[in-house]
């Protein structure tokens, strides 16, 4: 359920970044929308329905399309169904906020969202997501249920951040680091905005904008709540709590530790040497395997 909620939020953020770039830059909007689709891991499903990329069709596909299992409407419905299934595991506050989120989003996404209303709709998705998260932090027992909620969130987030970096990995290669006044790489801004980090980057990182420092921030920074290292750390922590609680260390914990070890005490240049794209591919497949391992270890699959 929290995987779905995290995905809805990430999708909204992705659209927001794509939309803003399309409005404020004179670059090729078509290419920008295509990379939004690729990042959301739904290119095949999109291409099966549509021919070409534009803001209307891409946003509709990502927000409303029932044929897209990752559309905001699809995942919110799935999240709400899950929440109903495990209703007794959730506090009233969490349940009612998930239920309300579903009602509100069904309402605002009933018809195609015109460009004029898009900023307001995306803001609603973000606000609803914050409401559920606030309910979770404020009211849930810190028991295994909470740990599983957090695991869902961070598996999804890890996956999402990795994809965002990978789709634009070419913009983060050191060769791309030309620094010009107005020539700043459009792609860097998109990347940072897709993870809502265009402000925190300026605060957290001492360096000027350049490819290596942005890649380092998104992959290795321990303070950045959407970085790969941060997500891996959270996965280990939550699996640790479960191990302590259940008195048993699982294969998932071992896998999560291995994943974190790949990211710990690395410096970005060694990752560039290894090959950024290859490195991200490995992280993506490790994350997917970890997700499946968790389902297996904790018997989420019958």
């Amino acid at each position: 359920m929290f995987r779905f909620l995290e995905r809805a939020e990430n999708t909204a953020r992705l659209i927001e970044a794509g939309f803003r770039i399309a409005l404020t830059r004179s670059t090729d909007a078509q290419a920008e929308w295509k990379s939004v689709i690729v990042t959301s891991a739904s290119q095949a499903a999109y291409d099966a329905k549509h021919d070409g990329y534009d803001s209307t069709r891409v946003t509709d596909f990502l927000l409303r399309d029932p044929d897209n299992p990752s559309s905001v409407l699809s995942v919110i419905k799935a999240a709400r169904d899950n929440a109903r299934l495990v209703r007794t595991a959730l506090t009233t506050e969490v349940w009612s906020s998930v239920n309300e989120t579903w009602m509100v989003l069904c309402d605002v996404l009933r018809d195609p969202v015109p460009e004029t209303e898009l900023p307001a709709v995306l803001a609603t998705i973000r606000q609803q997501s914050a409401l559920v998260r606030g309910g979770l932090h404020g009211t849930m027992l810190r028991n295994d249920i909470y740990d599983f909620c957090r695991l869902g969130t961070f598996v999804e987030r890890m996956d999402s951040t990795t994809r965002i970096i990978d789709v634009k990995y070419y913009a983060l290669l050191p060769a791309a680091s030309f620094v010009g006044s107005r020539m700043d790489n459009v792609q860097w801004e998109t990347i940072l905005r897709s993870v809502s980090a265009h402000r925190s980057f300026r605060w957290a990182v001492e360096d000027e904008f350049n490819a290596a420092s942005i890649a380092e921030f998104l992959i290795l920074d321990a303070r950045m709540p959407r970085s790969l290292y941060f997500c891996a750390g959270q996965l280990v922590d939550n699996l640790d709590y479960l191990a302590a609680n259940y008195g048993e260390e699982t294969e998932s914990l071992r896998k999560a530790r291995a994943l974190r070890a790949r990211l710990k005490d690395r410096d970005i240049s060694s990752i560039f040497e290894e090959g950024l794209h290859e490195f991200l591919n490995d992280v993506l497949s490790d994350t997917a395997q970890l997700g499946m391992q968790i389902e297996q270890d904790y018997r989420f699959i019958a």
């Binding site: 939309f19 399309a22 409005l23 404020t24 909007a29 803001s55 015109p114 460009e115 004029t116 898009l118 900023p119």
Partner: peptide, 8 residues
């Protein structure tokens, strides 16, 4: 925020 359509 108010008039995204203008900027497209």
């Amino acid at each position: 925020q108010m008039f995204p359509e203008l900027f497209s």
